[in-house]
Each structure stands twice: as structure tokens, then as C-alpha cells.
């Protein structure tokens, strides 16, 4: 007897399970956006603190570095006994990982601000707050956007590990496809993950270009590279 067909892609699967796939995708997007938003809200003050009080910079960077080294699988396992199985655990884990990338990039961005520019602003009588918001942060923006893109793309990929605690968005579909040996389900969810990462990356890139009109020339080069990598991603995935 021939084995039943087990294609890597099937429109029929997509048609019949459209609702389920969309549900998983929506959960995936929600988790990603929520985690990145919370991470931004926490990392910005942390990074500014690390920059303002150099004594705190070592501990903050060291702590985030250690957290980042802990494997996601282990982190979910450490959290699960306390926060339970499901959404909260995944969300906390995701925020923690995104946090580290963001803090690092914001601090690097703030450190990279030309001291002469800061000096000039001080000479013009800028208060520390005004200095931060109208000189330092805008100058650190390229590095911050780079961190945001990196954090978002990694978060999209990381959501799938949430399967461990039963809340992995598209990872859930992947895992079920594996358990029932249904290739189309695995491949579809994997493709959707890649596409989601790609779309969010491009959106952030565009947002960054809009926010940094003074960086257009550089941005143009960056976007062409990004488009190239986007095409490569699609090609390698299909």
C-alpha cells in the first residue's frame, strides 16, 4: 500500500483550517507586539539610568547579559511553576529577552553621541531633561531602531518556544503538525513566522527612516540591503 500523500504545502489545508491558522497568527502578533512594547517601556528608563549613573551601568549590563545567556527553554521552565502554563509565562520570558537587546542598543547609542554635540547643547544652556530628549535620544535613534528591529525579529522567532508551556502562537501549529506528522501544517506556520518577522522588520525600517529624515542617505543604502535580505529570506523559505 502506498503511503498517503504528505505534501509540504497544501492549499486544501489552508482553506479548511483558515480560522485556526488566523487565530494562531493573531496570538503570535499580539504576543510579539505586547512583549516588544513592554520591553521598550522598561528598557528606555533602564538604559538612561545606566548612562546617567555610570556606577549602575556595570550591574545593569552584567545582569542583562546573564539573563540573555539563559536558554529560553530553561527560562520558561523557571517561570512556569510560578506564573503557570500559558500566556503570562510566555509574555514575561519574551519581555526579558527583548529587554536585553534593547537596553544594550540604547546604551550603545547614547554612548555614541558625539561629546562635542552634547557640549555645545550644554553651552547653549540646555537643561539635562531637554538635553536628553532633544539631543541625546534623537542622536541615539539609529542604534535604538537597530535594536528594536533585532528585538522584534528575535521575539517573533522566540514566541514559538512558548510551546513548552502550551502558548506558542504559530509554534503551537508547528508542534501539532509534528505530532500528527502533517508536513503542510509545519511548513505553513514556519513560512508565516518568517513572513511576519520580515514584515515587522520592514515596517520598523520604514518607521525609522520617517523618524530620521537627516539619515536618509544612509537609510537608502540600508533599505536596499534589507530588501535584498527580504528576497533571500523568501527564496530560502519557499
Amino acid at each position: 500500500m502506498d503511503a498517503p500523500p504528505n505534501p509540504w504545502f497544501s492549499w486544501q489545508y489552508l482553506e479548511r483550517n483558515w480560522g485556526e491558522v488566523v487565530d494562531a497568527l493573531v496570538i503570535h502578533i499580539e504576543l510579539t507586539l505586547l512583549a516588544v512594547t513592554i520591553a521598550v517601556a522598561i528598557s528606555l528608563p533602564l538604559a538612561i539610568l545606566a548612562r546617567r549613573i555610570p556606577r549602575l551601568s556595570g550591574p545593569i549590563m552584567g545582569f542583562t547579559g546573564v539573563l540573555y545567556t539563559i536558554p529560553s527553554f530553561a527560562l520558561f521552565a523557571l517561570l512556569a511553576p510560578y506564573t503557570g502554563i500559558g500566556r503570562t509565562t510566555v509574555l514575561i520570558g519574551l519581555v526579558m529577552y527583548a529587554l536585553l537587546i534593547l537596553v544594550r542598543n540604547i546604551v550603545v547609542g547614547l554612548e555614541g553621541v558625539d561629546p562635542d554635540v552634547v557640549d555645545a547643547a550644554k553651552g547653549l544652556g540646555y537643561s539635562p531633561t531637554k538635553l536628553l530628549f532633544s539631543v541625546e535620544l534623537p542622536n541615539a535613534l539609529p542604534s535604538m531602531i537597530a535594536g528594536l528591529r533585532l528585538a522584534t525579529v528575535s521575539t517573533v522567532a522566540l514566541v514559538t518556544v512558548g510551546v513548552v508551556v502550551g502558548y506558542g502562537g504559530l509554534g503551537q501549529l508547528m508542534f501539532r503538525g509534528l505530532q500528527s506528522d502533517y508536513r503542510a501544517q509545519i511548513a505553513t506556520s514556519a513560512l508565516l513566522c518568517l513572513a511576519l518577522a520580515l514584515i515587522l522588520d520592514v515596517v520598523l525600517l520604514a518607521a525609522g527612516r520617517l523618524a530620521m529624515p537627516w539619515n536618509r542617505q544612509q537609510g537608502k543604502r540600508g533599505s536596499r540591503a534589507a530588501r535584498k535580505s527580504a528576497r533571500a529570506q523568501l527564496e530560502s523559505a519557499s
Partner: peptide, 22 residues
């Protein structure tokens, strides 16, 4: 650069399950 970017966007679990099912 492209290779490293794509690998970042690719969930490990996706690759694992794809290989396991192949």
C-alpha cells in the same frame, strides 16, 4: 549579513519540526 539575518528570523522550532517531519 543576509545569512545571519535570515537565521535570526527563522524560529529554531520551525527548523526542528521541519527536519523531524522530513
Amino acid at each position: 549579513v543576509i545569512v545571519s539575518n535570515v537565521s535570526r528570523a527563522m524560529p529554531t522550532l520551525a527548523l526542528l519540526t521541519l527536519f523531524a517531519a522530513s
